[in-house]
Write a protein that binds this DNA or RNA. Structure first.
Ligand SMILES: [Mn+2]
Ligand SMILES: [Mn+2]
Ligand SMILES: [Zn+2]
Ligand SMILES: [Zn+2]
Lengths: 143, 143
DNA sequence: TTTGCTATTGATAATAGTTATCTTCACAAT
DNA sequence: ATTGTGAAGATAACTATTATCAATAGCAAA
């Protein structure tokens, strides 16, 4: 099982309550929050925590390969405690961001590498559309 | 064959030399330039053109479905006069952005739609790695 | 436990890409 | 020619993110 505290210590980073709080919150959600979403959720429990600290914690986690940054076309980044690359899908109506099962993408990297001659190291796959919930609301006339 | 002037007129937009210049430049390049890259390239021929005009032209083109906006993880957007969704690959060394042949992605949308229940309208596929040129430079010791 | 070093925090200023504002200009319709 | 309106250019405003810096706190050594 993965342990934030161990990784921080191994790499010479200090273990602070702020870092633990940010990481735990991100780890415990499926909603791919942005920095300010994390900040707002932390406010009640950690009212003195600065937004800058949220950004700096995320920066450290990125360096350590513990989180990944997503850009789904908004003017801000979202974050994912699942650092393994996997496709995401965004609802253009309600804005939520969800994971896509990536079985079907298994040999994609290999194919792209062969086609382009690139030595591939990463990929970001984003899909956009209307989620089942928003489709339902639409036909039933809910705004 | 596609005609910018016709589309602008049809939709009630004025045909201006600035819009034509921005579009022609974007249409004639494969490098997926950002707004300021376009602006800088236009400077010699159109020294009075404002950066704001570049942005506003791109905005119009987006509305008309004539261009697409790319985000390859930089802190700015890039633009593509090929508005049809197609995968892109970025070299993490030299920063160039290229197209990927999308034959292999034909049935991807359908598969994702089935898996997620989303009504899909769009996708953005970004790959990252090292281009053949940069791989060569690396082994030959060029910085 | 106490001490001391130094990374980290919190507050805030700075940065940079993008958008909004506003005045002037171009130009098409009358 | 006159007039109305969208667009251009200049620049201010905006906003997410990053940098700065004094005060704080984690942690290793004594
Ligand atoms: Mn995810
Ligand atoms: Mn392209
Ligand atoms: Zn939705
Ligand atoms: Zn390269």
């Amino acid at each position: 099982m993965f342990d934030l505290i161990r990784v921080l210590k191994e790499k010479g980073y200090k273990v602070t309550p702020q870092r633990i709080a940010v990481y735990d919150l991100l780890k415990g959600t499926k909603e791919h929050p942005s920095a300010d979403m994390l900040y707002n959720k932390l406010q009640p429990l950690y009212p003195t925590m600065s937004l800058a600290t949220v950004y700096k914690s995320l920066e450290v986690f990125k360096e350590l390969g513990l989180v990944q940054e997503l850009n789904v076309g908004e003017d801000k980044f979202r974050y994912d405690a699942n650092a393994r690359q996997h496709p995401h899908i965004t609802c253009s109506c309600c804005g939520k961001v969800e994971d896509v099962d990536d079985e079907m993408f298994f040999d994609l990297l290999e194919q792209v590498s062969q086609k382009t001659g690139y030595e591939l190291v990463n990929q970001k796959l984003y899909f956009f559309g209307y989620c089942p919930q928003c489709q339902k609301n639409k036909v039933s006339g809910v705004s």
